[in-house]
C-alpha cells in the first residue's frame, strides 16, 4: 500500500520516528523500548562518569583543574537559578543543573550519528510534564489549597477557562519547542544531504554547526530558563 511514508522514502529522503528495538507486554499495555531510550541510557552513563570524575577527591582549596571546572559548572547554575528565581529556590539548583546538562548532551547526540532522543515527542513531553508537576506543586506549596484554587480565578472569575487552558498550554509549548527545534535540525540536515547528493561538502558542516551545536546548547538553556520562570511565577505566596 503506497502510504505517505513509503512515498517519501521512494524519493530518497526518509524521516522516521525512533526505531523500536524491543517491545514487551505488561498488564495488557505494550511498552516499546525505542532507540531514544537506549541513547538516553548511554547519556545517563556518560553523565554519571563525568560527574564521578569531576567530583572525585575534592579539596577545600581547589588544586586541580578538574575541581575548578566542577566549581565553575556549579557556580554557573547557582547564579542562573538564584538570578532568575531568587535565593528562596536554592533547592532547585541541582534539578535544573541536571536537567540542562541532560538535555544538552541528548541534543548533542546527533553529532555522534545517533538519533537525538529529544527529536522524539515523548521524551520532550516527559521533561515538560516534570515541569508541569513542579509548577502545580509549587502553587500548592506556596498558596496552600486556597491560593491554589484562587490562582485559577485571577484576575477575574470569568477568566477560569482561559487560566485552565493556559496551564496546559505551557507544557505543550515547552514540548513542541524542544521537539520542533531538534526535528527541524534533523529534517533540514537530511534534506541538505539529499539535495547536494555527491557534492555534500562544507555546506552540511556549516548547517550542522548551527543546528547540531548552537541550537542544541541554546535549546537546553532555553528549556531550563523557561521552566524556571514558569515555576517561580507560579508562586502565589504573600511575599
Amino acid at each position: 500500500m503506497p502510504s505517505a511514508l513509503t512515498f517519501a522514502a521512494e524519493s530518497g529522503i526518509s524521516v522516521n520516528g525512533p526505531l523500536v528495538v524491543a517491545s514487551f507486554k505488561l498488564f495488557g499495555i505494550t511498552f516499546n523500548l525505542t532507540e531514544s531510550v537506549i541513547v538516553q541510557w548511554f547519556v545517563i552513563l556518560l553523565l554519571l562518569i563525568v560527574v564521578l570524575v569531576l567530583t572525585h577527591n575534592l579539596k577545600v582549596v581547589p588544586e586541580t583543574k578538574r575541581q575548578a571546572a566542577a566549581e565553575m559548572i556549579v557556580e554557573f547554575f547557582r547564579n542562573t537559578v538564584e538570578g532568575s528565581m531568587g535565593v528562596k529556590y536554592q533547592r532547585h539548583i541541582a534539578y535544573f543543573g541536571a536537567l540542562c546538562c541532560f538535555i544538552m548532551i541528548n541534543n548533542l547526540m546527533g553529532l555522534l550519528g545517533l538519533r537525538n532522543p529529544t527529536a522524539d515527542v515523548s521524551v520532550t513531553g516527559a521533561f515538560a510534564i516534570i515541569t508541569f508537576c513542579m509548577v502545580q506543586f509549587n502553587k500548592g506549596k506556596t498558596g496552600k489549597f486556597k491560593g491554589f484554587m484562587k490562582s485559577f480565578v485571577e484576575p477575574l472569575p470569568f477568566m477560569l477557562p482561559f487560566n485552565i487552558i493556559g496551564e496546559f498550554a505551557n507544557p505543550l509549548a515547552l514540548t513542541l519547542r524542544l521537539f520542533g527545534n531538534m526535528v527541524a535540525g534533523m529534517v533540514i540536515g537530511s534534506l541538505i544531504y539529499f539535495a547536494l547528493g555527491h557534492f555534500a561538502i562544507l555546506i552540511p558542516a556549516v548547517a550542522s554547526l548551527y543546528f547540531d551545536i548552537f541550537s542544541a546548547v541554546m535549546q537546553a538553556y532555553i528549556f531550563m530558563m523557561l521552566s524556571m520562570s514558569y515555576i517561580s511565577s507560579a508562586d502565589c505566596g504573600e511575599d
Binding site: A4, L5, A8, V15, N16, G17, L176, F179, G180, V183, A184, V187
Partner: peptide, 10 residues
C-alpha cells in the same frame, strides 16, 4: 512546522 511535518511524513 509540526503540522507541516505531520502532513509530509505521518
Amino acid at each position: 512546522l509540526v503540522i507541516a511535518l505531520l502532513l509530509l511524513y505521518a
